[in-house]
Design a protein around this nucleic acid. Structure first.
Length: 1131
RNA sequence: GCCGGGAUGUCGGAAUUGGUAGACGAACACGACUCAAAAUCGUGCGAGGCAACUCGUGAGGGUUCGAGUCCCUCUCCCGGCACCA
């Protein structure tokens, strides 16, 4: 036998495997379970780097072992062949992108084959192959037909360098993810996929996935769900008749009814015009008559608010249906859409059609509000649901004075009638403290208010100033705005909002710290948000606190005892300044081991200040404490009182005192024992206090920072005294409604570039966008002369007249083909499905074949795709599921992110660093088996990290393989097994198998090394043992092991052999070494038979440390069988 | 700021999940072979100490017979999100 010639061996076996089709995978093999192992297919950039090796050759170990373990493993490969680099190369070097791409693929395939991976090349797919992209187009059209793909004129991320639009996910820090150019916003018609419809499911379904938390958390953050409440703030104007209210009364009602007249007075007082037509035949009304009167009562225009109560609501809807121009608002209270009264028939039931045209209603009313009181005797829940469904909205729940809105005064009605600004909040518990509104500069209400048609004045009196601010804000990019944390804004003069909780008039401001892209583009400012407080202070806007902090002690001696009631108490925290030094009093309260200030209860008839002065005197003796000031509002705490033996719920008033002099009275011994008093500097005392309630009070001595946390409400009407968590849903429901907002935007898939899948849509002047019929698919990418985009937003395809000019498939009139191409992430959103049936000409994949393989058992890829490809393909799968095209809601059972291989210097590999490792060179020198195995050995594969390439480390692995190679001749391979290796071999079989499944290839390899070390020590090995070892090594070093396997006289490839089994009973050695400890410290060891029992072990251990135990009192001995014996000894 | 993950020799990393910390590899040192070097083989290799022994898993505290592992407080590093109401 000769030296280890990796070149000869590796080419030999790669050819042999290919010739035999060793890795060709059947869809189903009797008696074998399928296993689908997926790695992200590469982009054909032209050259393979170490990262590719890491991505493909290491998971190959798992694929190979799974096969040996009797699984039918699909380990496919292909190329993500569309994309910009091909096109950029085409523009630069005047080559055809297809030729460039296919040439690269040819070269890279050779490189990939040199890895010795067990890819099934018969299933190779190319996304730029018309046979593949036919189905990309077909799937896109299925989405289009279900409204999941739509075209919309939207501001989109435009990369001026790549001259194309990018998805949000492809913009990093405002720059193009690909080329680093600053992205600008450009308004263009774009094809979108409705990924936002799936936002909730994309988040919720993560819970059931057994994926690394990092990946799940990234996706959650990216989708960015925030749950909160939308609350409407009514507006009032200074300039008089801005709105015209038309109020329609109900059955048996009259215009003269007290409540309508009351609302009239209230609205007129706000300067609005009010019209209340008397509807005819109020006791026996008919639709025709009433609608006629209402319709002609006045002119309906964009300033009109139409209100209908009860049957009047029905009339109002009928009126709106008939309008030709939209009105501002339609408000309905106690509305009926389908009357089925059980008790008695009403005469009007048959005189109204009860048929509505919801589309016309929605079209003719810019906004619709439905009011409902759950106690309403006339309107059932069913009725409410009917109208909600019809108009596709949620009713606002009111508490009326008379359930059917029939009280003489109905404040809720009035509240909803006035024009409103809708804000979004996650903290409705602070709503009573909302003292101003902030609108984003892009807020539509401002746009509308600033519109000046020359006839009427804007409602805003400082129009010019607002205009300037809005324009200035528009000039700045989002980044520029965020760079200056200094808040700016302008008050909107001539208009006030009404806080719905208090009825207080509050100012409206435009400020660019409100973002149109989040929530409703408007927020209410309050005293419990640092940003709002900063803004309010800058502009002198009043603030109103409504939350006092509540701390619950959960550690220490004073942690609350569960299941025990709380005793409430009013109390003080007194911070006491020294009479001359810059020092503060620090009290150590002994019974509960608390570091605090002076604290104590307020007794009957006392005020806080006297109580505090008394406590200072009692606890410390100092009698001349001068009151300086109150330190903000109260602070609440729940804790356990060690002295009272009770759970306490205490309301502290934090106060600041200064001693006038050192006058001190004698205090009792018991007080002295309970309180240890000292004087500390500001810094020291800050560190000294170890209870949150005291720290909070203390923080107010220095500065007045707003309290942003949750707590207990005060000055909040009926909700005062509740905790934030209790109050939030209550306040939210009463004044607004629960909504969810997402950061995620729809996925823009149009690309204004050549080298991609043509979007299979035809634009027709009469029919709109029309799907290309299935029979005409694929829409093939035409050849063009010039690949340069025009830079104005049209792809090079737009210049190919033959391609563009087509007949509309529907009406046959002349039409234009869509010339944008699809984002390459669309191609890769379903490629794993195609692998299951790559040659199918009739379907994207056969349902049965997908059943065999999907979902993917393990998907290994790069962390950079967490919020891109992985998210997109999850969405795609869910959309396909909804269309009945696939059976799984999730595409990947298990997903793992791979680490990065750094250069030898620990830097990211790059040409500029000069630290790039060329795998081809290393393979030529040391062999593919060595490179594969080194990469597997470099660190745990399943954890995201980064590993520097260590040239010495590769050589170390090569050394190991050479030792294996030489073992065949140096070790005496004998027929008889070597007993000394028996146990360790079984242990190795178990560990290697377990570790591979856990993707801990590094420890599997170290176990193989341990075994070889042991065998070398013995200088001999049994033939069967040797062959077992070769089978264990086969997944790691497939070429060498097959060579050795054959030279051991075997005819079949080692990769067709089955994985060795281990005997549970042989995992333990016959003799074992146990540690002997005294008080947990190792003092010796003892070796004895593995099956010895506990008492034997203890006795053996005792004799080992006998001298040390002499004269000591052994309290007890802890025996952990097989591990250690620990003697607990008294000093 | 919020959320997630992490920190172990000179380096990459192990540690049966509470049981002898540092497996395996690399680097380094010494020895053998050699005229010599490389390769190979052998030995050593956390720190301090002649030794007995002491200390040691980012820092501090706690629980436990026993803590890298569990609990509390803090520091730093990596990742995601962020004037997000």
């Amino acid at each position: 036998m000769h030296g280890y010639d990796h070149k000869k061996i590796e080419t030999k076996w790669q050819k042999a495997w290919a010739k035999k089709g060793l890795y060709k995978t059947s869809d189903k093999v009797k008696g074998k379970d399928n296993f689908y192992l997926l790695v992200e297919f590469p982009y054909p950039s032209g050259n393979l780097h170490v990262g590719h090796w890491y991505a493909f050759s290491v998971p190959d170990i798992l694929a190979r072992m799974m096969r040996m373990q009797g699984r039918n493993v699909l380990y496919p490969i292909g190329f993500d062949a569309f994309g910009l680099p091909a096109e950029n190369a085409a523009i630069k070097n005047r080559v055809n992108p297809r030729k460039w791409t296919l040439g690269n693929i040819e070269f890279m395939k050779k490189q990939i084959r040199s890895m010795g991976t067990s890819f099934d090349w018969s299933r190779e797919i190319l996304t730029c192959d018309p046979a593949y992209y036919k189905w990309t187009q077909w799937l896109f059209l299925q989405f289009f037909k279900r409204g999941l793909a739509y075209q919309k004129e939207t501001p989109a991320n435009w990369c001026p360098k790549d001259k194309t639009v990018l998805a949000n996910e492809q913009v990093v820090d405002g720059k193009c993810e690909r080329c680093g150019t600053q992205v600008i916003q450009k308004e263009m018609p774009q094809w979108n996929l409705k990924i936002t419809d799936y936002a909730d499911r994309l988040i919720n379904d993560l819970d059931a996935l057994d994926w690394p938390e990092q990946i799940k958390e990234s996706q959650r953050n990216w989708i960015g769900r925030s749950e909160g409440y939308e609350i409407d703030f009514p507006l009032v104007f200074d300039d008089g008749k801005k709105y015209k209210y038309v109020l329609l009364h109900g059955y048996t009602g009259h215009a003269s009814d007290a409540r309508w007249q009351w609302i009239r007075r209230e609205l007129e007082a706000l300067g609005h015009e009010v019209i209340i037509p008397e509807l005819p035949n109020t006791d026996d009304p008919s639709e025709e008559e009433q609608v006629e009167v209402a319709l002609h009562a006045t002119e309906y225009d964009e300033r009109t608010v139409l209100f209908g109560h009860s049957l009047g609501a029905t009339v109002a809807m009928k009126v709106v249906e008939k309008l030709t121009a939209p009105i501002s608002r339609l408000v309905l209270a106690g509305a009926v859409v389908n009357p089925r009264f059980k008790d008695k028939k009403r005469p009007f039931e048959k005189k109204f059609s009860w048929r509505f045209d919801p589309e016309a209603i929605k079209k003719n009313a810019k906004s619709i509000t439905v009011l409902h009181d759950p106690r309403d005797y006339a309107i059932t829940e069913k009725q409410r649901q009917l109208i909600e469904n019809m108009l596709n909205l949620k009713a606002r729940l009111c508490s009326t004075t008379e359930p059917h809105f029939t009280g003489d005064r109905e404040p809720d009605l009035l509240m909803w009638l006035r024009p409103t600004i809708r804000v979004f909040t996650t903290r409705p518990d602070t709503l009573y403290g909302g003292t101003f509104l902030v609108l984003a500069p892009e807020h539509p209400w401002i746009k509308a208010a600033l519109q000046n048609d020359g006839h009427r004045k804007s409602v805003i009196s400082n129009e010019a100033e607002i205009q300037r601010y809005v324009e200035n804000a528009a000039k700045k990019t989002e980044r520029e705005r965020q760079e200056s944390k200094e808040k700016t804004g302008v008050e909107l003069m001539g208009v006030k909002a009404i806080n719905p909780t208090t009825g207080a008039e509050i100012p409206l401001w435009v400020a660019d710290y409100a973002l149109m892209g989040f929530g409703t583009g408007a927020l209410f400012g309050d005293a419990h948000d640092a940003r709002d407080v900063a803004f309010a202070k800058k502009y002198g806007i009043p603030l109103r606190e409504t939350i006092e902090p509540l701390f619950i002690q959960e550690t220490g001696l004073d942690k609350i005892r569960s299941d025990e009631p709380f005793t409430e108490r009013n109390s003080i925290h007194a911070f006491v300044k020294h009479w001359s030094d810059e020092k503060y009093m620090a009290v150590h309260y002994v019974p509960s081991d608390i570091n605090e200030c002076v604290s104590g209860g307020i007794e009957e008839g006392e005020d806080a200040v006297t109580a505090a002065q008394r406590e200072i005197r009692e606890e410390t003796g100092y009698s001349k404490a001068r009151f300086v000031r109150k330190l903000g509002n109260r602070v609440h705490a729940k804790y356990y009182s060690v002295e009272r033996k009770k759970n306490m719920f205490v309301h502290f008033t934090p106060l600041l005192f200064q001693l006038e002099d050192d006058t001190q009275e004698e205090i009792s011994a018991s007080e002295k024992a309970r309180h240890e008093v000292s004087w500390l500097s500001k810094e020291e005392v800050g560190r000294f206090f170890n209870r949150d309630d005291i720290r909070l009070g203390w923080s107010r001595v220095e500065n007045d920072i707003p309290y942003e946390g949750k707590g207990i409400l005060f000055d909040s009407g009926e909700f005062s005294g509740l905790t934030s968590d209790e109050a939030m849903p209550k306040i939210g429901e009463k004044f607004g409604r629960l909504v969810k907002h997402y950061r995620l935007r729809d996925w823009i898939v149009s690309r204004q570039r050549y080298w991609g899948v043509p979007i299979p849509i035809i634009h027709c002047a009469t029919c709109g966008p029309v799907a290309v019929p299935d029979k005409d698919l694929p829409v093939k990418l035409p050849e063009v002369r010039d690949y340069l985009p025009d830079g104005k937003g049209k792809s090079p395809l737009a210049k190919v007249i033959k391609f563009v000019q087509v007949k509309c498939p529907r009406c046959k009139s002349s039409a234009q083909r869509e010339t944008d191409t699809l984002d390459t992430f669309v191609d890769s959103s379903w490629y794993f499905l195609r692998y299951t049936d790559p040659k199918n000409k009739k379907k994207f994949a056969d349902a049965n074949k997908m059943d065999h393989w999907m979902p993917v058992d393990l998907y290994s890829g790069g962390a950079e795709h967490t919020t891109m490809h992985v998210l997109y393909s999850r969405f795609w799968q869910k959309a396909m599921f909804d269309l009945g095209l696939v059976k799984d809601k999730e595409p990947y059972v298990r997903r793992m992110n791979r680490s990065i291989i750094l250069g030898p210097d620990g830097q990211k590999m790059s040409k500029s660093h000069g630290n790039v490792i060329d795998p081809d060179e290393v393979v030529a020198r040391l062999g593919a088996d060595t490179v594969r195995m080194y990469l597997a050995f470099i660190g745990p594969y399943s954890e995201v990290s980064s590993f520097p390439w260590n040239p010495d480390g590769v050589v170390g692995v090569r050394r190991f393989l050479e030792r294996v190679w030489n073992a065949g001749q140096k070790l005496a391979v004998q027929e008889k097994r070597v007993d000394a290796l028996r146990h360790i071999l079984h242990k190795t079989v178990k560990k290697v198998g377990d570790d591979i499944i856990a993707l801990k290839f590094n420890t599997a390899i170290s176990q193989l090394m341990i075994f070889l070390n042991a065998a070398e020590k013995e200088k001999k090995i049994g033939k069967e043992q040797w062959e077992t070892f070769l089978r264990l090594l086969a997944p790691f070093a497939p070429h060498m092991t097959d060579e050795l396997w054959h030279s051991a006289g075997r005819k079949r490839s080692v990769h067709m052999e089955s994985w060795p089994k281990y005997d549970e009973s042989l995992l333990k050695d016959e003799r074992m070494t146990m540690a002997v400890q005294i008080n947990g410290k190792t003092r010796g060891e003892v070796t004895l038979a593995s099956d010895s029992d506990k008492t034997v072990q203890e006795q053996a251990a005792r004799s080992v440390v006998a001298t040390r135990l002499q004269g000591k009192n052994v309290l007890r001995a802890i025996v952990v069988p097989g591990r250690l014996v620990n003697f607990v000894v008294a000093d």
